[in-house]
Design a binder for these strands. Structure first.
Lengths: 190, 190
DNA sequence: TATGACATGTAATCTGTTACATGATTAG
DNA sequence: CTAATCATGTAACAGATTACATGTCATA
């Protein structure tokens, strides 16, 4: 019974996540991207407008043309129930090793949208799963490092060490974020 | 007089960099990618073989078919003089803010290949330039954080903090790497 | 002699980038 | 009234992913 949904790109999810709390036009979205560090997820109209239309074709957002008196044509998009479901399953899905290696930014995007979309408990679960995955990948990297160490040039070894440090930073951050969330849950501050 | 070269992708440069110390076949290269953390730069034959052919068309590598008695067909690629020049100018080119935001992995790739390709002095210069760029971007991010802080949900704020920490890790790493290189240069160890 | 790993590739499809095009509205 | 900016898009192209196709050699 499950129809195989065509895949949604990172950009698509970024758009869904931004539209979820507040409907917006393509132009609004573009401005959010280009004016903040979200520009990592593309900020060109040639990516955003087609992505919005794809989401619309899949029934995940619905665009309505605002036609108040004398307004320029401005199409405002809203997330549909279906779109919200997709967003939630994307956020709560498992964190694969491949996510960690090839789609780190997408992981952070998932977490950034987690709380408003799926609540603090799910956000905390996400962090714990991420901590585990990052820890495991870290020990793989460290092992790989001891193997490659001697034959590579110094700059190569240093570059590899940066890779390790980056995942250490991720791991430490998950620990701190978990602590923060647990404090919030105990303290009862929303 | 300067003919506008078609652009080379990250993967293209990764291949050039790997071929520079030692000629290899497409399959060898694929194995390097898939067996190490270089798999971040794609590991599928559908990316690597076409990329090699593009490089060949541009005269940056040359493939020769090894036909020793009874061998399977195996095409070994070597970097040409032109290819080496391209690699060097890619490595030594300026580090733009855009590189830092959208192509961080490519920056590390440039550095990883720096020492064998352009020597320790250039590698050190690269690090210093990177330290500066990272420091500047960091203060931008910190500023953006104080602005966005209050209105965003906790998970959004935490995700942003991770972004800051990641660039802090990069910055700290450049400082350590610079220190390492300076020690090596003084100490005279190759 | 059949199986599996080696080695190389191609085709379809999707997405993003770049660069341009269009009209509507506001500021000077 | 004209320039800029708002808001929306399209077309051409490059590159990557996925999935498949092909042939060769070693070994059981």
């Amino acid at each position: 019974m499950k129809r195989k949904q065509p895949k949604i790109s990172s950009l698509g999810y970024a758009l869904l996540g931004l539209l979820q709390p507040k409907p917006a036009s393509g132009y609004d979205l573009r401005k959010i991207f280009s004016s903040t560090s979200m520009k990592t997820y593309s900020d060109s109209p040639g990516a955003i407008y087609p992505a919005l239309r794809r989401l619309e074709r899949q029934g995940l957002v619905r665009g309505t043309i605002e036609d108040g008196a004398g307004l320029r044509r401005r199409q405002v998009f809203r997330v549909t129930a279906n779109g919200l479901a997709q967003l939630n399953s994307w956020i709560t899905g498992p964190i694969t090793p491949d996510d960690l290696i090839a789609r780190e930014k997408e992981i952070l995007l998932r977490f950034a949208f987690a709380e408003p979309a799926v609540g603090t408990t799910a956000a905390l679960a996400f962090l714990k799963s991420l901590e585990k995955a990052a820890g495991e990948y870290l020990s793989e990297l460290r092992q790989e490092f001891t193997i490659m160490n001697e034959q590579a040039p110094l700059s190569g070894r240093l570059a590899f060490q940066y890779g390790i440090r980056a995942y250490e930073a991720l791991w430490h951050w998950t620990r701190d974020a978990i602590a923060t969330y647990e404090r919030v849950q105990k303290g009862g501050v929303s």
